[in-house]
Design a protein around this nucleic acid. Structure first.
Length: 827
RNA sequence: GCGGAAGUGGCGGAACAGGCAGACGCUGCAGUUUGAGGGGCUGUUGCCCAUAACGGGCGUAAGGGUUCGAGUCCCUUCUUCCGCACCA
């Protein structure tokens, strides 16, 4: 009988669906395991990255299930976002139609791959039953002062015509479309993620099951630095400028001050002075520089004196005030003190504009030559030129100066974060509407919870481009104020889609709840996610936001955990010809064609076999063929032994074992051990599969080398059963079919995971490698229980070894039990 | 510049606590089965020397070190990929 994967795969997919095989509910008597893969954006079709992501998750799910866990394995759709809107604009399809069609299509594809999802729990973020809770989350944040609106310079993508979060700007370009991002001064909604900065940073330590790389990326993104806020008075005004510095110990070396060109105080300071026009010109120039060159270290530092002086609060020195391109409004206070002797950027700036360079730290040993300073001295040392602080180590000086400043009320200790608040407004249609109403009497009014969801209207027309169609939708905009009942206006911005994906893992624990986003009880059973799998591209954005939400919900008493994901696996990319698969490069292999030609089992097997999951994977058509060949080999050998399996019943054949029987049993039980360790401890599916391949090879050997009359049916049956069980998580359809064929009862996926028999792993003869001076010269079989002396004696009496030693001196013999003997020979 | 990961045959990759480098798969070659093709099966496949045969030498980015023994540990250097990047 041929291996007809089409028939087999659809047969079992049907059966699993009819039997609700993957439905899971809370069961207090069983240990739970929450397996989650990052849910996809419904772009239309699965790509190989999806297949990889979900194959990894499915192996773990099926394995853990066989290990007896109650495994939660849900799937859903991150369904809001721009591509739907772009499709609508380009093809005249409504984003909703486009999205739901894609979801239907991709759900079919996922089922066609045989993934074991509990489809009863499916969610789509664009469905009112879901975004009701997205809006609800917004309201909770708002109530707790963590959602607020402010006017600020924000990142603006002209192509997507919407604002972007800092995290969505990559190299000054829009993360989505690659267009250079500009700045706009807009009123926008923010989430105060900065309030959680410290905890988000400190709790990274709890994430023992996360890759180091991701943790470091998050640490750097949060970017904590300790220092002080220092106030500088502006001469001739009542104004004070506050700077943040990590080096208060260098404050006596301040020789100038700089503001970011966009700093709100700049215009005031130059107003009506001779410097005004030049300053405006400079600001304009800097703003038209794009973000990439602006923030590159190579870009030459440029500045402009704006006619004012600041007073150093420590020593009363008068220093000139500049604006310069290298100071960023977004970081710290948007103002810095210039200490050219001890900061390389300041050094370059001071050199260019001929500003004094005053060293205030000298190295422990050598004296610093002021006239000869080639670069800033940024290392630690001893304080000089610093009044009462002279002679202190600068590390001590930092503390002393901060204390002094706090006493004199000229500054204070401060911890600064690079992390900015999360800008969540989007000027787009296809997203969850922000549940806010603007009333002329009452101002900003949140929509009451009982009025949620604020439904996204579907009667919209996509005429032109760029602008959100919500702006034209008067029936949506016009509303009444929930407080005073007078006519009012709805917020037309929608939320960043990352808001939707920041709590979906909690929603999965209780997806149909209409009273709450999820019940505490169910979340208590299922959370936290035991294993999360997805691409490393979400290392910062999604994973940081999800952690923030979880902590917030934990503080509200809703979430039972304050970290959502216990273990994280970041899978590598799928490459072809060394590059990421992409339409533009024309190197895309579609999952559909592979499944059609070889079946889902082959597709899954290949993608797991070709590389360890965390590494990039090079696609190989021949490699796929190889996996297909392997499954055919499995098919044939099991069919060959079918009758043996069926007839042998439960006969115990382990009583009289031949050498070959023992060998086969050794391979079988060793394979159980290897596969278990590979899955359990390392997620090394590639080596797990290769171990199963070796088992199949051993079965063929046994079939061909042992005369049929000598074959031990119980040993064969044991080998076949275990082969199928070990392969089941990887290739679920063919193993299910062969399990049935060999008249095993029940679904193979409900069987317990096999355990190895350590008896079978005991060998009475062991091969010992014989080395002379570290080179392999011979090998010999010895009894497994032979003593070191016996082994040494055996080895030294081997003819070949005797020959090679000749009359040379044996100075040492090293015996590594059960492995090797190394004879050290001199002369 | 900073941080991270990596560098092993023709290719993807093994080698888990310092003990046989190249498991497993692909590719190539030779043979076999078959009417042919496909497919299956058997052998072989790191490089060099030798070859009737036994065999021998060299090999894990480069160089050095520790060790009876190093892909693995230490030092120096190089390359590639990824992330961050004027962060005060």
């Amino acid at each position: 009988m041929e291996y007809n994967f089409h028939e087999i795969e659809s047969k079992w997919q049907q059966k699993w669906e009819n039997d609700n095989a993957f439905r899971r509910v809370e069961d207090p008597n069983k240990e739970k395991y929450y397996m989650l893969e990052m849910f996809p954006y419904p772009s239309g079709k699965l790509h190989m990255g999806h297949v990889r992501n979900y194959s990894i998750g499915d192996v773990i799910t099926r394995y853990k299930t066989m290990r007896g866990y109650n495994v939660l394995h849900p799937m859903g759709w991150d369904a809001f976002g721009l591509p739907a809107e772009n499709a609508a604009i380009a093809h005249g399809i409504h984003p909703s139609t486009w999205t739901w069609d894609n979801i239907d299509n991709m759900r079919q594809q996922l089922k066609g791959l045989g993934f074991s999802y509990d489809w009863e729990r499916e969610v789509a973020t664009c469905h009112p039953s879901y975004y009701k809770w997205t809006q609800w989350m917004f309201l909770q944040l708002y109530k707790n002062g963590l959602a607020y609106k402010k006017k600020s310079y924000v990142n603006w993508c002209p192509s997507c015509s919407t604002v972007l979060a800092n995290e969505q700007v990559v190299n000054g370009q829009c993360e989505r479309c690659g267009t250079a991002v500009g700045k706009k001064d807009l009123e926008q909604w923010f989430f105060r993620i900065t309030k959680y900065a410290e905890r988000l940073l400190n709790d990274i330590e709890k994430l023992k099951g996360w890759p180091e790389k991701v943790k470091i990326m998050q640490k750097n993104w949060i970017g904590r630095s300790e220092g002080a806020m220092v106030n500088f008075k502006i001469e001739g005004t009542d104004e004070t400028i506050t700077v943040f510095t990590t080096r208060p110990d260098t404050i006596y070396g301040v020789t100038y001050m700089v503001l970011a060109p966009e700093h709100p105080m700049v215009l005031e300071l130059v107003k009506g002075t001779e410097y005004e026009s030049k300053a405006l010109e400079f600001i304009d120039k800097v703003q038209h520089m794009n973000e990439i060159t602006r923030t590159s270290e190579e870009t030459e530092k440029e500045g402009l004196f704006i006619g004012r002086h600041a007073i150093n609060p420590m020593n009363g020195e008068r220093v000139p005030l500049f604006i310069a391109n290298y100071v960023l409004l977004e970081y710290g206070t948007g103002a810095v003190m210039g200490v050219p002797a001890h900061d390389q950027r300041d050094f370059e700036f001071a050199t260019k504009y001929d500003l004094p360079i005053i060293p205030v730290i000298k190295p422990e040993r050598d004296d610093i030559d002021i006239s000869n300073l080639k670069e800033a001295f940024e290392a630690e040392g001893v304080m000089i030129n610093s009044g009462p602080f002279n002679g202190l180590s600068n590390v001590e000086g930092i503390q002393k100066i901060i204390e002094y400043m706090e006493q004199k009320d000229i500054g204070k200790r401060h911890v600064n974060y690079r992390l900015r608040d999360w800008l969540i407004s989007r000027q787009r249609y296809w997203g969850a509407p922000i549940p806010i109403v603007y009333c002329d009497n009452c101002g900003i009014v949140p929509v009451p919870e009982e009025q949620l969801p604020v439904i996204l209207p579907t009667d919209v027309a996509f005429k032109g481009k760029s602008q959100s169609v919500l702006l034209d939708n008067q029936s949506f905009i016009k509303t009444t104020c929930p407080q005073c009942g007078q006519s009012a206006r709805r917020e037309t911005d929608t939320m960043d889609t990352f808001v939707c994906s920041s709590f979906y893992f909690l929603r999965f624990t209780d997806p149909k709840n209409t009273e709450a986003p999820f019940s505490r009880e169910k979340a208590e059973y299922w959370m936290a996610v035991d294993q999360y799998v997805g691409g490393v591209e979400h290392a910062i954005l999604h994973l940081l936001y999800a952690r923030f939400f979880t902590k917030f919900l934990y503080d509200l008493g809703l979430s039972p955990v304050d970290e959502p994901f216990t273990n994280l696996l970041t899978q590598g990319m799928v490459l072809k010809d060394g590059a990421k698969m992409s339409k533009s490069k024309g190197n895309v292999v579609s999952p559909e064609e592979i499944i059609d030609k070889y079946g889902a089992d082959t597709a899954r097997l290949f993608i797991l076999f070709a590389a360890p999951p965390d590494r990039d994977l090079e696609w190989s058509d021949q490699g796929v063929e190889g996996c297909y060949r392997f499954l055919n080999r499995v098919w044939r050998i099991v069919n060959d032994f079918k009758d043996v399996c069926v007839d042998s019943g439960n006969e115990d054949g382990t009583a009289s074992l031949s050498e070959q029987d023992k060998q086969l049993r050794y391979v079988v039980h060793n394979t159980i051990k290897r596969v278990t360790v590979d899955i359990e401890e390392r997620f090394n599916f590639n080596t797990a599969i290769s171990a199963v391949m070796e088992l199949v090879n051993a079965l063929y050997q046994y079939r061909d080398k042992v005369a049929p009359a000598q074959q031990n049916r119980a040993v064969i049956k044991e080998a076949i059963s275990n082969l199928l069980l070990l392969l089941a998580p990887f290739a679920p359809h063919i193993t299910e079919e062969l399990w049935e064929l060999t008249t095993h009862e029940g679904s193979i996926h409900e069987q317990p995971w096999p355990t190895f028999d350590s008896e079978a792993l005991v060998q009475d003869q062991i091969e010992i490698v014989v080395q002379i001076n570290g080179r392999v010269r011979d090998r010999v079989m010895v009894a497994a229980d032979a003593s070191q002396q016996e082994v040494e004696g055996t080895v030294l009496s081997l003819p070949k070894i005797k020959d090679l030693i000749g009359d040379k001196n044996v100075s040492k013999v090293i015996v590594v039990p059960k492995k090797l003997v190394n004879i050290v020979v001199k002369g």
